[in-house]
Design a protein around this nucleic acid. Sequence first.
DNA 1: TTCAATATGTAGCTCAAGCTACATTTTGAC
DNA 2: GTCAAAATGTAGCTTGAGCTACATATTGAA
Lengths: 141, 141
Amino acid sequence: MGKLPAEGTQARRFGKTRSAQSTALLEDYVELIADLLAGEGEARPTDIARRFGVSHATAIKTIARLKRAGLATARPYRGVFLTEKGHALADRARVRHRLVVDVLRALGVPTESAEADAEGIEHHVSELTLKAFAQFLKAHG
Amino acid sequence: MGKLPAEGTQARRFGKTRSAQSTALLEDYVELIADLLAGEGEARPTDIARRFGVSHATAIKTIARLKRAGLATARPYRGVFLTEKGHALADRARVRHRLVVDVLRALGVPTESAEADAEGIEHHVSELTLKAFAQFLKAHG
DNA sequence: TTCAATATGTAGCTCAAGCTACATTTTGAC
DNA sequence: GTCAAAATGTAGCTTGAGCTACATATTGAA
């Protein structure tokens, strides 16, 4: 075994990709909750569910996961709130989202598509790539 | 802040992102299987499992999903093969992967990071964005 | 040719994310 | 103040992707 030097590397790479997906949903949630709190003053499970296009039961379950992860708190029938940690994650997610959208637009992607694609892409962009994006925008933005 | 897109639009957007993730794994598999078939002449569950860093049981289950999806066939103890449809998907995936890597590199992302990030990104790039990428590379590549 | 090592396959578990159905709490219209 | 509608919460099912443990088939070395 081990005759191909790339095996370990590739396994690690894919592993990273998979586990990234397990946090992607949580990031989407804290991002939306932060938006709702800022824009509406409160974040209700029903609103969250509607925005994501899922049932309210599904939203509530994911909110429970956020709580377990220490990202959010919730008082029954009184909405969802972000912890310090949750806010920090939301901020980082928003910065990344903006950066990805701006780069896509700079590359000539129509705004609509840029926004849509960024939603999926943003969770897979490493720090190094993020740095390169910022650098590129500084030069061509 | 407070910039909340129309509900329907966002629901559709996120919905698309989610379902994209359900096909991402299948794309990774057909891509690897195509590589193994081209490079080694055969694609064995154990090799596939090792490359992805998962147990062979997990690989076999996913291969079963590929069969159900009409992307692959397998004869017991004789390896995995791609259907016409599977080969087509693998080809599309490979093209996208190359394009994403090339664009990232053109933006100044180190090759290592570009390859790693592309693995996660490639499944979320729309046709329109792909076109823009190709266009950009033609001009700046 | 035999038999142990390896590869492959099967069974059954966990967890996450989705759903529907039902129960309970809040709220708002009268 | 009452009571129905809306919101919220709970229970339990499905599917997918992961795992370990065990069973069977193939292959290669002695």
